[in-house]
């Protein structure tokens, strides 16, 4: 029953995001601020993780190829497939659920406990639109971040392969070009857009409807991370089944 209540309240909040919009001039500023906080602010960690995880994927693939019948180009192929299909869109979004999600929950939650949301409501401002809509718009740029993640993941794999001596540059490049299906990139971006909506709204819901004080803000951020991760994993399964199966 409690879960159904939360799902209902979450859907009602989503409706509020789009009604009684904030003035365009103010909204534009908020969107740019959220792009800075949520997207630009995430580039560093995304770049770092993608490069090294791409490297690890390549090393592990190379170390598990024992048969001389398997071509060395498989290292590049496996790195590309792992990074494009799963690591960049799904696991990077789960990592961002920790960074971006907890930022959204704690910033909105703090506004709740310090009565700043009540102040917006008393002024006659749709606080849900004011707080959540710019984050949702900013998160629509997440595919760009994931694009960078894909590139750096493969670059990390290439670097690790070359410096580890696991295969030649030509083999690796041959592998990343082998049997390439552009639809896989499209599938990854579709997933990313869906996950971006989840990343912006579930943490916002947890922050907006939280009750209590500073301690509860921390708890809400944890709950937001858990639920965002669960929803991303479930949606990942559903989208994969729908688009690739």
């Amino acid at each position: 029953m409690k879960l159904l209540h939360h799902i209902g309240a979450y859907l009602l909040m989503l409706r509020l995001v789009f009604i009684k919009p904030t003035k365009a001039k103010v909204m534009r500023k908020l969107i740019f601020k959220d792009i800075q906080d949520l997207i630009v602010g995430s580039l560093g960690i995304v770049a770092f993780l993608s490069f090294f995880v791409g490297g690890v994927v390549a090393i592990q693939t190379a170390l598990n190829i024992e048969s001389p019948l398997i071509p060395k180009s498989l290292v590049g192929f496996a790195t590309r497939q792992s990074v494009i299909l799963e690591f960049a869109p799904t696991f990077m979004c789960i990592i961002l659920a920790g960074k971006v999600g907890s930022f959204i929950t704690s910033s909105i939650g703090t506004m709740r406990v310090t009565e700043q949301i009540d102040a917006l409501e008393v002024m006659g401002i749709n606080s849900v639109n004011y707080l959540v809509f710019p984050k949702l718009v900013a998160m629509m740029l997440l595919p760009l971040v994931i694009n960078i993640s894909m590139f750096l993941g493969i670059l990390g794999g290439y670097t690790a392969t070359l410096y580890g001596g696991f295969s030649s540059s030509a083999d690796f490049i041959d592998g990343i070009q082998m049997d390439f299906k552009p639809f896989h990139v499209f599938y990854a971006f579709i997933k990313t857009v869906v996950f971006a909506i989840v990343l912006a709204t579930i943490p916002a819901y947890q922050g907006y409807y939280m009750k209590g004080g500073a301690l509860e803000v921390g708890k809400a951020a944890t709950v937001a991370f858990v639920w965002t991760s669960i929803v991303i994993i479930v949606l990942n399964y559903m989208i994969t089944q729908l688009l690739l199966a």
Partner: peptide, 24 residues
């Protein structure tokens, strides 16, 4: 006027005071 003032943390004093007029 709220018990805890409810000022917007990320805005300066001037921006806080201008805020209702900018919005409404």
């Amino acid at each position: 006027v709220f018990q805890g003032s409810a000022l917007f943390d990320s805005m300066t004093v001037l921006e806080n005071v201008m805020f209702p007029m900018q919005m409404l």
